[in-house]
């Protein structure tokens, strides 16, 4: 399969209520590394298993939630190509100059009908630590904390989920991997730019622009257990897990950062090819779809967002 156009999630910018506790959480507990601090106080973080400059941006603010999720595209000309397609679709595209975030080239941005800002960029400098490439050991520095390997995806809550589905599939060339609910009144959609079970997902919610969770990938189920030990040891606010999702099959824990933004760490999940049919969950199986072992939603899943 030739992987062109949108490659993968690039970064997400989160709002946090208190920066020192956020850094402790994402660096010491999740296991990310701090790459740099910007002149405006934004903090740039990455996993040591990611090449690009950063994948998580923290911004101090008076409310929690997300500012923007950005995807990396294969080449600079893709930005022009996507700008035309997005504009033709009827959305307004704006332009962010290179180095507005350190190490990241020019970006184009637009607002989804769910109230979420999405950006695309083609260029990212690499930063240390990063994976080795010559006779590569599995890591340069031994992983710490929950040993997160990458910022993997986000689940976003807002209205007009089916409009987002149409936009991502017909303008950004994503594939829909799974849906929840009846056609014409979908509860949630899962979208992939490549071979992962999802790179972004949306669930219907009356308020626009909400964040349900950002997710970090771990190596295996044993690391999910290790993450649970860290959550207990450091009294991190737990939501649910360890458990498994029926959707994607990922083995998972949901918990909260010190500002109340939900995090996930997960391992596994099925491999998707673009010729695969969409997997669907009907309303009668929504509990099993979300929490496969419990087979029922917890109160927080539908109502707790930032």
């Amino acid at each position: 399969m030739a992987h062109t156009g949108v490659l993968r999630p690039g970064f997400i910018q989160l709002r946090v209520l208190d920066m020192p506790s956020a850094i402790t959480h994402y660096v010491d507990r999740i296991g990310l590394h701090q790459v740099s601090e910007g002149p405006d106080g934004r903090i740039y973080l990455k996993s040591a298993d990611e090449f690009d400059h950063h994948s998580v941006v923290l911004r101090r603010a008076d409310s929690a939630g997300m500012d923007v999720m950005a995807f990396k595209v294969a080449k600079d000309s893709d930005l022009d190509r996507f700008e035309k397609r997005i504009t033709d679709y009827g959305y307004v595209v704006d332009h962010i100059p290179p180095e507005e975030q350190p190490g990241i080239g020019r970006r184009i941005g637009f607002m989804l009908e769910s109230g979420h800002r999405i950006e695309l960029f083609a260029h990212a400098e690499q930063s240390d630590p990063k994976p080795l490439t010559l006779n590569p050991d599995v890591w340069d520095y031994e992983p710490h904390g929950m040993r997160a390997r990458r910022f993997d995806h986000a689940l976003l809550y807002g209205p007009n989920v089916e409009k987002n589905l149409d936009f991502f599939c017909n303008v950004l060339d994503f594939s829909c991997t799974e849906t929840v609910g009846p056609t014409g009144n979908l509860i949630a959609v899962f979208l992939s730019a490549g071979m992962k079970a999802h790179d972004i997902a949306f669930a219907n919610y009356p308020s626009p622009g909400k964040l349900h969770h950002i997710s970090f990938e771990l190596e295996n189920w044993n690391d999910v257990g290790h993450a649970a030990d860290i959550i207990a040891r450091y009294d991190i606010s737990i939501d649910i897990g360890p458990t498994r999702h029926g959707i994607t099959r990922g083995q998972t824990i949901y918990f909260f950062d010190p500002s109340g933004n939900r995090n996930e760490v997960f391992a596994g999940g099925f491999t998707f090819y673009p010729d695969h049919p969409i997997r669907t969950w009907d309303e009668g199986h929504v509990g099993k779809a979300i929490f496969y072992y419990e087979r029922v939603l917890n109160d927080a899943f539908l109502s707790v967002v930032t």
Binding site: D18, S63, A64, F256, P258, G260, V304, T306
Partner: peptide, 28 residues
């Protein structure tokens, strides 16, 4: 019970009487 960290707003309450220490909570 939601995030337990001042972000989601679901545990909103009104203090009728008493003293307390406040930590950051979302202006939203």
């Amino acid at each position: 019970v939601g995030c337990r960290r001042g972000g989601c707003g679901i545990c909103k309450a009104k203090i009728v009487t008493g003293e307390f220490l406040r930590t950051p909570m979302s202006r939203s």
